[in-house]
């Protein structure tokens, strides 16, 4: 085990997969320079700019180029600098990468990995801070993973690169410099398996990405109040490990869902629907969602902080579900 930052873990996954498989290419804006946050640092020096390819600022064509190259058998890993910019590549992602395998009746394989980071941190404002994972889970053909710690960042990215379907690996910018133990050498995490982050018997708290950290803080606080919170990190939103969540509900009977994206039509809404279909009999209380309010992300530090769901709001929601109004 080595202690790495989240961004070092990503770098390590890319390095190992570039070394392991000659079909892996890292493609994107400034990736040969290391990228704006250092995810691809040193890779061009080690593997050459033939395999770590700087592109023009052309998100649509990058996505299409990688999709076409994937159809030819390469395993491109593209970096879209901010999830907000993926809007420029949605046609290629949604209409092509996601659907070519299906539309061709299984003839074409698209082993494409899309790395992208998101989240409200650093006062980037409305075009650099969104959380858009719900868009992608609405598109059949895409897999969507959201690592919440360095070990998962490595394990999920490695699994994504090896997957034969297009996978979107959504990183959280505010987690980039957090540290954690990462298994040495090859490390993969099967896509579609949730992680139990803290056991508890009173309420299940499903949290994604950076909200896992907040959920664990809240669980610690509430333990002092006699509320035992079970924290589950789905890690993969699609495919979703619903079994782990319903198994937890069987024990707790209560569910709170936390994500940083706006609540409206978010992952929480989808999970809520799936849970009431699969596990209504286990529920002893209404399900609560905690996400951002329905507004663009503001820039000012004060406004940004008010926007991002924090520990206090989440604790309040959990108390309400456990103790009633």
């Amino acid at each position: 085990m080595a202690e790495l930052t989240y961004i070092e873990a990503i770098n390590s996954a890319l390095r190992e997969e570039l070394a392991r498989d000659r079909g892996v290419y890292v493609i994107g804006e400034d990736v040969a320079l290391g990228g704006p946050f250092g995810a691809t640092k040193g890779l061009a020096a080690e593997f050459g700019e033939r395999r770590v390819v700087n592109t023009p600022i052309s998100e649509g064509a990058i996505m299409g180029l990688a999709t076409g190259a994937a159809a030819m058998g390469l395993r491109p890993v593209i970096e879209v600098m901010f999830v907000d910019f993926i809007t420029l590549a949605m046609d290629q992602l949604v209409n092509h990468a996601a659907k070519l395998h299906y539309m061709s009746g299984g003839q074409l394989g698209i082993p494409l990995t899309v790395r992208v980071q998101q989240g409200a941190a650093g006062n980037g404002g409305a075009q650099h801070s969104q959380s858009l994972e719900a868009w992608f889970i609405h598109v059949p053909g895409l897999k969507v993973v959201m690592p919440s710690n360095p070990a998962d960042a490595k394990g999920l990215l490695t699994a994504a690169i090896r997957d034969d379907s297009p996978v979107i690996c959504i990183e959280h910018r505010a987690l980039y410099w957090t540290r954690g133990e990462v298994p040495d050498g090859e490390h993969t995490i099967p896509i579609g398996r949730a992680a139990l982050r803290r056991p508890g018997k009173d309420v299940t708290l499903v949290a994604t990405s950076r909200m896992v950290e907040v959920a664990l803080e809240v669980a610690g606080t509430l333990a002092n109040e006699g509320i035992e919170v079970e924290v589950i990190d789905p890690r993969s939103l699609l495919p979703l490990d619903l079994d782990t969540i319903t198994a937890s509900l069987r024990k707790t009977g209560r569910l709170v869902i936390a994500h940083e994206a706006v609540e409206g039509a978010g992952f929480g809404a989808e999970l809520l629907a799936q849970v009431q279909e699969a596990a209504f009999d286990y529920l002893d209380a209404p399900i609560a969602r905690v996400g951002a309010p329905f507004a663009p992300v503001p820039a000012s530090p004060v406004l940004e902080q008010a926007f991002v769901p924090g520990a206090e709001r989440l604790a309040g929601a959990v108390r309400k579900v456990v103790l009633g109004a």
Binding site: R50, G64, G68
Partner: peptide, 14 residues
């Protein structure tokens, strides 16, 4: 069009 360019990219790499 970008898919065709991607195939050209892959062909050159391969």
């Amino acid at each position: 069009v970008p898919l065709a360019v991607g195939a050209g990219f892959a062909a050159k790499q391969l």
